[in-house]
Every structure is written in C-alpha cells, then in structure tokens.
Design a binder for these strands. Structure first.
Lengths: 347, 347
DNA sequence: CTGAAAGCGCTTACAG
DNA sequence: CTGAAAGCGCTTACAG
C-alpha cells in the first residue's frame, strides 16, 4: 500500500487537490483532468486511506455494535439486519461480542470512543456504574435496544406487555399453574420487564404467583434445559405450562420435558419468546411472541443515522427518540387448551 | 470529543511529546511528570484518537472479517471465537455479513483495504475473478477458511476426508442407497470437497452413484427442507439414508421427513455436518461431523497475527501457512444400522 | 476549473 | 528525562 495521493498526482501531472476532487466527486473538474487522474489511479492501483480521510473529516463512517451473544440466532438476525441497513448507507460495523460481561462492555464503549465511531448500537441491557457513567457523559450518538430508564434513544418492543400477553394467552387456554423460566433480573428489558408482565397477568386474572415454579436464567438453550430439570424434579406435576423468556430457553425446556418422557403439549404447554428460527424447527412447533427483527435492525440504524446527522448539523427537527415496535403472538402446537380438562374455568 | 493531546499538554504544563509518552508507556518519564499528565487526562476526560494514532503508526489494529451468514449458528460460533481471541490481543473486528453475495465480498475487501485493516479473515469460499484478483494482488495478511486452491494461508478441516468419513460410516451401517443434500459447487470447500468425498466413498465401496438422489443447496435449514421434499416426492422410498453438507440442512431435512410421517432413523437415517448446537436440539439427536470451532477461531487469529508480525518485521521464521484441523464423527440417534434389514451386507 | 498551503491529532527521530 | 518540529495521508478554505 505504498502509493498515496501524492504519487497519483505526480503520475497524472496534476495537484493533489485535483486528485482529491475526482475521488470525492464534489466540485467539478474538467473531463480531461478527470481522465488523467483516473488513469493514474488505475495504473498505480491506488487505494485512498479512509484513516487519513477520517482524521481530516472528523467522521469515520464506523458504527460500533455491542451485542451480548452472537451465537443467539435471534441476536444474530438483528445484527444481520443492522449490517445490511448500515452497509447500504455507507457505514461499516465494528462488532463486539460480549457474552454477558459488563466489564467488557465498558472496555468496548471506550474503544469505540477512541476509534471515533460515528455512532453506537447497544444491545446489552445490564447496567453498572461505569456503563451508566459512560452513557450519560458521551457525545456519541447511540441507540439502545433496551429500556434502561435513562431516556436514551431506543428501539424496542414493549417487553412488559409482551410478557403480559404471553401469560394471558396461557391463562385463557385454561392454565392456572404457569411456571416461568425468566431472564436475568439485572437485564432491565428482556429480563425484568417480561417477568413483570408475567406477574401482572397472573394477578389481574386472579392467579396466585408461586415462586417455587419460577426460575431465572440467561436466555441460553442449555440453561432452559437445566432450569426445566429443576422445575420437574423439585416441583414436578404442579404446573401445566411454562413460559420462557427466550425461544432458546423454551426449546431447552422442551428437550428436557421430552427427555423426562412427558408430552408437549399433552402434559405441559410451552410458550417461548423471540420468534427465532428454532421455534419452527422443533416438534411440536413452539408457540411464541415474535419480535419484528428486521424492523428492529432497520429502525435502529435509521434512528442512529438521524441522530448522527443531527449532531453533525443540528436542526430544530429533533428525531424521534423512542420507537416501540409491535410484537405478535404466534400460536403453534406447543400449547393446548386445557379448560375442559381441569373443569369449567371459563363458563 | 473536542479535547486533544495539545489540551492535555497545556493543562499539565508539559509538551505533547511527554503526554504521548505517558500514554504509550514506552520510554521512561519522571513520576512527577506522569502524575501531572494523568491528572490532566482525568480532568479533561481525554480520549486519545486511535484514528490519528493509526495514521501515524501505519497500523490500525483492525481485522476485517467476511462471513457468509452470521445467522448460521456454526459461523456465529466461529466468529465469536475469533472475536474473543482477537480482542485479547488488542485487535478489533470490522465485520461484514455477506449472505452469499460475491459482489459484496469484492466491495468489502476493498473497504477493508481502504480502512487499512492489519489483516483479513475470509470465511467465504465462492470465487470470482475480482476476488481472485484481489487475493493475488493484496499485501494485506489474510487467512481463509477454505481451500481455494490458491496457496493462501488457511485454517480448515479436511472437507474431502470428512465427507468421505461421513459417507463411509453410513455404508458401514449397511446403507447402499445414500442420498446427498450437498452444498454449492461454486463453494470450493464445504460445497465441492464434501461432495467429492461422498462420491469417492461410494465408489470405493462399490456403490453406484445415482444423481437422482443428489441435490445441491446453500446450507440453510429451509433449503434442507425443500430439497428433502423434492427427494421424497421425486425419488421417494428409493434411499435409506441422507447425508447433508450442513447441520442446518440436515435438520431441515429431518423436519421434512417427519412432516411426511416417516421416522428417523426407522425409515431414513440422517447424517449432518458441522456439529453445531442444533444437532443436539433435535430429536432424535443428529449424527454429524463435528468441526473444532473454537480451535478454528483461535488458530485463525494466531496464524493471522503471525503473518501480520511477519509483514511488519520480516524474519526468516516463516509462519506455517496451512493448518488442517481434525474433525470427528459424533454418532447419535439419527442413523441406524440396517445391515440385518436388507440382507447380510457385511458377513 | 485548478493549485499551494494549512491542518486534522497523533508519534517519533533528533537534539539537548 | 524532556521538548520542538517534522510528518502520517488526506481535505478544504483561499486565491487565482
């Protein structure tokens, strides 16, 4: 990569200013000059340095993305949609896979700052003081995929309502003992909100919440299996359905239930959350709350780019800062109506 | 981010040279000076620009990664391992999700070049002239996860042998009619090599290869379903097992088989490839060829960093340029021995 | 339409 | 141990 703009200028017999102009297609240059420059670029196989350009322009066209776990199909799908949308707009992605580590989040937020990224997407929803401090202080436009209670620009579904809807559906299907495999309570959206929705739905429908059939996990498949195993051995037979805060955990739970020689939905109904591919892979198919992944990715980048433009050239037209997208309950074969079985719940 | 090294120097009452020195911990500075500088950095909340540093040092600590499909669990796992290994060594990842698009590969290779990444990881295995041209010309250290027949540094398993082993196993289990759901023949490793291994194993064991029970796909779950559907409707009953070139396709095929009211492995045995999580999720569990994903990620970065060092400070100790890692056949419940059923194949 | 020159924010010989 | 100055490879007022 030894060749730089100066070399092109020399070979083309023009100034570096002119080379820069044909590169950036901004101001008009004569056709003759343009041709000379293009020929020299071709001849030298010149590749302009985005590093130098970024330094000068004070703009990197880089977006830093912090994602808790790329190996989650749901998160990978969002990342994929973010990548596609950002790519179309000429932005590149700096990606950090965090694996539930708040220390690493802080580290990467600082790296992103040092790299002078134009914007940040934060899909991580656990907080600590350092993260909170960074988020309140930073000048970098950012969008979070979580309700962190900090009035930050957000693209998300209504996790509370979604948890409420999932639980209500099970109740309508006649279930009165609904176990929950919830997320991490330090995770303010997918963890806490979905759980709160579950609690509220139970209370609103007159069910007593029984903590002995509630577990807390980390959204992973293996965890769903492990927690379901606990539920079956410690609280076996005392519930007719289970609501998991992620499809991966739901599928882990299904595997465990089946390994215990129990039937889904005959013995236990299972409700998932996310609407990721795996929900359609397992048998019976998983009833789940579907999040609009493609929309989430697109809207996240749209909002972020708006914020970036706004910070570059402030105008009175403030971009919307909160986007709540609609979720959807997809009923498949993993849940069944047991109203008839346990008596006339709904008359 | 208005604050720059000059400001720190002014506030600390020292030269920018000294500030740079405490930042980079290279040459020794007096404790007194260091303290003044650190205090000023703290006070101003200074974040040194990696962009400026990269320009000056001619090193970005950036690695560009081109991955065909992040939503594939197998690929995401490798990416995750790459990210972890690279992060530990102080490198950040520029990620491009390509979705089987050779045009996009060329585009991103050039972006990576313009961004002056220190190295490139290419997980994409389809070629075209532009890609080939780039790969032969570039000075950027790179590692490919495919045998592209170009003598490039490579970390990979022996796909030919793995395809051979998978097929031989089925043959040993008594199968004589083995369908294949292969990859893309433009994909030189996972596509072509695994298929060639299948062909060779059939021939070596005296089986005739029947093209009517062979299909070609793109490794995705939905494609496995679709192609299995073709096989069942067009060549139904004429084979006792199927070998798929990816676990995702194998699972799609399993779903299709089960949706046709057929049993696995009772009616049809299924063999996968990759050893990704989904193989243990489905019932029966999928027999598959397991790739050593974590090792692949680690070795890829190790090799790449060696090449980067080598190109920065050439020495006579050339790093090894080809790493072939061992695969492993994991036998689970999706294949069964049918020697007894169709007669004494092995006496 | 074109070019000379300053400057983006750092690092690093060089000199003291 | 410390600092003044050149320079990394670009862009962009400014002047012509």
């Amino acid at each position: 990569m030894g060749v730089k703009i100066k070399d092109v200028a020399r070979v083309a017999g023009v100034s570096v200013t002119s080379v820069s102009r044909v590169l950036n297609k901004g101001e008009h240059v004569s056709e003759k000059l343009e041709k000379k420059v293009l020929r020299a670029i071709e001849e030298l196989n010149y590749s302009p340095s985005l590093i130098a350009k970024s330094l000068k322009r004070n703009k990197t066209n880089l977006i830093g993305v912090i994602i808790p776990d790329i190996t989650s199909h749901f998160q990978a799908t969002i990342l994929s949609s973010i990548e596609e949308t950002a790519g179309k707009k000429g932005y590149n992605l700096l990606v950090s896979n965090i694996v539930e580590d708040t220390e690493k989040v802080v580290k990467y937020l600082n790296v992103f700052q040092d790299m002078r990224v134009d914007g940040i997407v934060l899909m991580h929803a656990k907080m600590n003081d350092d993260i909170r401090h960074f988020l309140t202080k930073t000048q970098i436009p950012l969008v979070v995929h979580a309700d962190l209670g900090m009035n930050l620009p957000t693209v998300i579904i209504d996790d509370y309502k979604a948890g409420y809807d999932a639980t209500s559906y099970l109740i309508q299907e006649g279930h009165q003992r609904i176990a929950m495999i919830a997320g991490d309570m330090r995770d303010l959206s997918a963890g806490r909100k979905r759980y709160e929705g579950y609690l509220a739905a139970c209370k609103d429908h007159g069910l007593t919440v029984d903590e002995s059939i509630i577990r807390f996990g980390d959204y992973k498949l293996a965890t769903g299996y492990k927690l379901m195993n606990e539920l079956l051995t410690e609280a076996g037979g005392s519930f007719t359905s289970v609501f998991a805060a992620s499809d991966d955990m739901a599928v882990g739970a299904m595997n465990c239930i089946q390994d215990h020689q129990l039937h889904i939905p005959g013995d236990i109904s299972v409700m998932g959350f996310d609407g990721s591919q795996i929900a359609d892979v397992v048998r019976p198919r998983l009833t789940t709350i579907k999040q609009p992944v493609d929309q989430i990715g697109q809207m996240t980048i749209d909002l972020l780019l708006n914020l970036i433009e706004q910070s570059a050239a402030p105008s009175s037209l403030q971009p919307m800062r909160k986007v709540i997208l609609a979720h959807e309950l997809i009923a498949k074969g993993s849940c069944r109506n047991i109203s008839g079985k346990i008596g006339p719940l709904i008359q």
